[in-house]
Design a protein around this nucleic acid. Structure first.
Length: 424
RNA sequence: GGAGAGGUGGCUGAGUGGUCGAAAGCGCUCGCCUGCUAAGUGAGUACUCGGAUUAAACCGGGUCCCGGGUUCGAAUCCCGGCCUCUCCGCCA
């Protein structure tokens, strides 16, 4: 959520940001109109309240002195009625402006290039050599099915398409990757491990920006519980400190978590339906940081490097892409995507998005810190990045490490976790 | 699922419808004091919104879990919700 004062005082800056994002600006004008109305009415109401308070105090004194306060009480009865009316009008206006504010996306950072869509995203750097094959590389669904380590048909039988049954070394690989990535982040990158709930309430979902705009993308339990399956660990982990004030010496706070992630992928029906490219439930390691504002862009680079390190250790070639204004997610001010190459499907696959939200989420979730002991609390900056998402990583691993006979070499770093050198 | 108790500042914990943004203690900050530590001693210690201002001081509103209600006036009375704890039942 943007600061209402920013929108109020620099509407043209916000308007330009919306235009650069290909977003609608009519809500902005609506906000400005209602906000102006609200402030005028608020001042009137507060003047009346001040009068009520002082007269009430006076009444108390008169009663103590056994004087007659009937006329004052009569007068205040009317004033109170008017206050009540104004308060309900104010509440209505406030609800409307707040609602609008929740649907306005973040303002992109100045280092983010202006662009229409993903075609305008510049590649910042690349790492690794694409492997040259002396045979035709197979797609992962063929490899996995032949080795009987993923059972796509039975996954669908249990739940539906996009739900995966891993078996044998497929299941083991999933567990190995989760453990290994958490180990790297906790013992080498300085993150603390947490294991949050997977079901999330509405307030937390609003805190990180999934609601109210993207409710259609989420799995929802039912009306009575009103809970959502987490679409990413970003949501439960960022909201750990909802409505709290952190001390400056707790920052930067770096957390990492494994969660299963659930996404309805509404609107992408028919796209990437084969294999593991786009699924409704997947595993992911996430990194989340709470940092002081002046450090957030530096921390953002470090976070991105931490995700890259995972790929480097696995020997997977990748590229880092900077999202342009037109492709940037709703809550982010700046975001790098990490894409890895998968030779079997001949595609670059997104396995990580590393975002700096500045104070956008912190304001929604009310997460603050004290820059000085006893000082005024300020909003922290929040960041997060996948470190990394499993299914597409598994795709790339299988396809890059496949051999001519259909077996898959296990990358060095995973062997202690897998117990074998080759999946066959 | 059943029965009960309770939600007050960073923490513990008082609170009679008006002088309560809230006693007291702990913690913390700044000073004083005894050679250091401990103890003692004085002062200060919540958040938020609107307005004014270069900024602060300043003026006003709101906040004692949340939302309604009663009242001239609510931490206090009434209704609804959420959460926590204890006991019982069920259960991995």
């Amino acid at each position: 959520m943007l600061d209402a004062k920013l929108v109020r005082n620099e509407p043209e800056k916000v308007r330009q940001a919306l235009i650069n994002r290909n977003a609608d600006t009519t809500m902005l004008d609506e906000f400005l109109r209602l906000d102006d109305e609200w402030r005028k009415l608020l001042q009137e109401a507060e003047t009346l309240k001040a009068e009520r308070n002082s007269v009430s105090e006076h009444i108390a004194k008169m009663k103590k002195n056994k004087e007659d306060a009937t006329s004052e009480i009569e007068r205040m009865r009317e004033v109170s009625q008017r206050i009540k009316q104004m308060d309900s009008q104010l509440a209505e206006l406030d609800a409307k402006t707040s609602e609008i504010l929740l649907t306005i996306p973040n303002v992109p950072h100045e280092s983010v290039p202006v662009g229409k869509n993903e075609l305008d995203n510049p590649t910042i750097r690349t790492w690794g050599e694409l492997r040259k094959f002396d045979f035709e590389p197979k797609p992962h669904w063929d490899l996995a099915t032949t080795l009987d380590i993923i059972d796509f048909d039975r996954g669908s039988k249990i739940t539906g398409s996009g739900f995966i049954l891993y078996k044998g070394f497929g299941a083991r690989l999933e567990r190995a990757l989760i453990n290994w990535m958490l180990d790297v982040h906790t013992s080498e990158h300085g993150y603390k491990e947490v294991f949050p709930p997977f079901l999330i309430n509405r307030k937390a979902m609003t805190g990180t920006g999934q609601l109210p705009k993207f409710e259609e993308d989420m799995y929802h339990t039912d009306k009575e519980d009103d809970l959502f399956l987490d679409p990413t660990a970003e949501v439960p982990v960022t909201n750990i400190f909802m409505d709290e004030i952190l001390e400056a010496d707790q920052l930067p706070m770096c957390l990492t978590a494994y969660t299963a992630c659930f996404r309805r992928e509404a609107g992408s029906a028919g796209k990437d339906t084969r294999g593991l490219l786009r699924v409704h439930q997947f595993d992911k390691i996430e990194m989340v940081k709470f940092v002081a504002p002046e450090t957030s862009y530096n921390e953002h680079e470090k976070l991105t490097n931490n995700a890259e390190d995972i790929l480097q250790r696995l020997g997977i070639p990748y590229r880092v892409v900077l999202l342009c204004t037109g492709d940037l997610g709703f809550s982010a001010a700046k975001c790098y995507d990490l894409e890895i190459y998968a030779p079997g499907v001949d595609k670059w696959l997104e396995v990580s998005s590393c975002s700096n939200f500045q104070d956008f989420q912190a304001r929604r979730a009310n997460i603050r810190y004290r820059p000085e002991p006893k000082g005024k609390p300020e909003f922290v900056h929040t960041l997060n990045g996948s470190g990394v998402a499993l299914p597409r990583l598994v795709v790339s691993l299988m396809e890059n490490y496949q051999q001519a006979d259909g077996t898959i070499v296990v990358p060095e770093v995973l062997r202690p976790y897998m117990g074998v050198d080759v999946i066959k």
